[in-house]
Design a protein around this nucleic acid. Structure first.
Lengths: 327, 327
DNA sequence: GTCACGGATGTGACCGGTCACATAGATGGA
DNA sequence: TCCATCTATGTGACCGGTCACATCCGTGAC
């Protein structure tokens, strides 16, 4: 009735437990017939190796822990989805550890958590100060891959993987400029300050066109702060184009514009970032930059598994209905 | 340099490893001064117990694995957030295991995964057939709590926790009826068929008011299918009120209505389900039922920890701008 | 004074795998 | 033919905790 152990399998197959272990770990030094036999017995006995015992003997768990500041926002959740999917396909357990803030205590606790080899390999989502802080404090012996904003993070030696947001932000800005807007305003989401790729790309395009560079309007992750940022811009009659930090931000900005009597896109054009699943069904449908966070998550797992690197699809501007020439 | 083990702590404190183990497990039979001493030494040595070794000795990991069909949709992601938060506060590791579908193979693999005691306790998100399937097949020796739709799942003996969606759906329907609508149409999201709490509540209210009960229009999780469902209703000029399975559905339905030239809420009222963070900032702001999935997740963890049950806040209709009297 | 008892602490075995090393048999070049 | 080498397999120790049980001590009742 109790779950079979490796020794039960060995006994039933008439081999030693070490041979079973070899089969389990794909050791090349097992005769094909022996392997075949062992596999059959494992099947028959419904044998499942105990992950804890394995982790203990191995010194490190066959697992991936995702360290992230958030699990529900689109980018974070999608990345987690990609990691889980890829990890599952490799037979790895997938864990989640949230870092609530970049406070010293929160970061330290998260680092301690993943320092336990039972956490396995680690994917740090370093989109924000909390994640970046964890990445900085992580001891060198923890196998880690970081998902970052374009360009990676200065001063860290870890492996970084990212989507080229900077280029995409520049594309989006150019699109608005080409429509005839004098300049493009920007409502920024929180980000690891020195990197701030979306903001950098926006500035690149403005610079390149010789357009004036308005002050960045900062917003938080919550809709309310984005709404307030939007109100501020809505009241300035000369703003006709707004690049929003993400789609949620765009939604709230649009609301603020609406309340101020300014139509999208007739009076003001807005573009988002992420291309959340519903963006195409907004009214008006949102012009936004499609980001493949799921693929980013998968790529992180590949990197941890030393699998051949599959190139990530670059973020791409999807033009829909929320952008138009200025009035 | 290598991480300290329980024996190192014992040696440094001048006690036996068993005493350290007792401190670790809050055994009552340790002299306060001894406990104090051991705690200090653990602190000084930065001792962190090895979770794998613990799981192995204990027979079951101090962990929670969330089994779910999805990690990105609002309800699922929020529930995961709640579980992670509560689990972390209790010092439990939190893992995620996605079941892609309710196919026999997918369900079996997920069940095997959590049957390994290393998975710890299990929270099954049984909102859909995949989760319900896992719940049904789970061996009795796996400690499990299920998050379900209102009313739970027939034929399962596991502990169930849920938000009373049925009542809330009825409330939402009554709200529309009271505004003067002749009846209310329903675009349903996928659900574990026999339960289908939202749908049941909608029917309850219609019955009670003696209103005609239109055929349910089914939709999937994707916006496109919701959009198609919306188109179908948009073309019927006699539909003036629609209860949507969730907020994402409402968004797409609204789009379909718009394309057909029908204004919300002047021509058609819509109400959603979930109250996603942006719902208040839609244009028009969405009338919807607020569901506290995060609290649901926390409650699942409490149940696993045998903590005193904190009552869940009932789902509540939030009236905003998307509902109005019929034209 | 002695003994039963319960709290505080220590010792050895064990959880279910892995690793390092030993051994037996097959292969092949001198 | 013989020994070096490689392949296939087996044995004992170990990973870092826990459990069951033994021991030691102080207390109170007789």
């Amino acid at each position: 009735m109790t779950a079979p152990r490796i020794r039960d399998v060995a006994a039933a197959a008439g081999v030693s437990y070490q041979t079973v272990s070899r089969v389990l770990n794909d050791s090349p030094n097992v005769r094909p017939e022996t392997r075949q036999l062992v596999v059959e017995v494992m099947e028959r006995l419904r044998y499942r190796p105990n992950r804890a015992a394995r982790a203990l003997g191995l010194g490190r768990a066959r697992a991936i822990t995702v360290v992230t500041a958030n699990t529900t926002l689109y980018g974070y959740a999608s990345l987690l989805q990609g990691v889980e999917e890829a990890g599952r396909l490799l037979g790895l357990a997938v864990g989640v550890r949230v870092v609530e803030s970049d406070s010293e205590a929160d970061v330290r606790h998260a680092v301690e958590y993943v320092s336990d080899p039972t956490a396995g390999s680690v994917v740090v989502v370093a989109f924000d100060p909390a994640g970046a802080g964890v990445l900085r404090m992580l001891p060198a012996d923890v196998p880690v891959v970081a998902a970052t904003e374009a360009g990676g993070l200065p001063g860290s030696t870890s492996r970084m993987i990212f989507l080229d947001e900077r280029q995409a932000a520049a594309d989006a800005t150019r699109h608005l400029l080409r429509l005839g807007h004098r300049t493009v305003h920007h409502v920024a989401i929180p980000s690891e300050a020195p990197a701030a790729a979306r903001q950098a790309g926006w500035r690149d395009a403005l610079d390149e066109a010789g357009a004036p560079i308005p002050a960045v309007v900062p917003a938080g992750w919550d809709s309310r702060s984005a709404y307030l940022a939007g109100q501020q811009l809505a009241r300035q009659r000369d703003v006709t184009a707004i690049l929003c930090g993400n789609d949620d931000t765009a939604l709230a900005v649009r609301r603020a514009l609406f309340e101020e009597g300014r139509d999208v896109p007739a009076d003001v054009s807005i573009v988002g970032f992420d291309d959340v699943p519903g963006a195409a069904y907004w009214t008006p449908a949102l012009t936004t930059v499609r980001m493949d966070f799921v693929a980013l998550g998968r790529a992180c797992v590949s990197a941890l598994a030393d699998a051949p690197e599959t190139p990530l699809e670059a973020p791409r501007l999807i033009v829909r209905e929320s952008t138009a020439p200025p009035p």
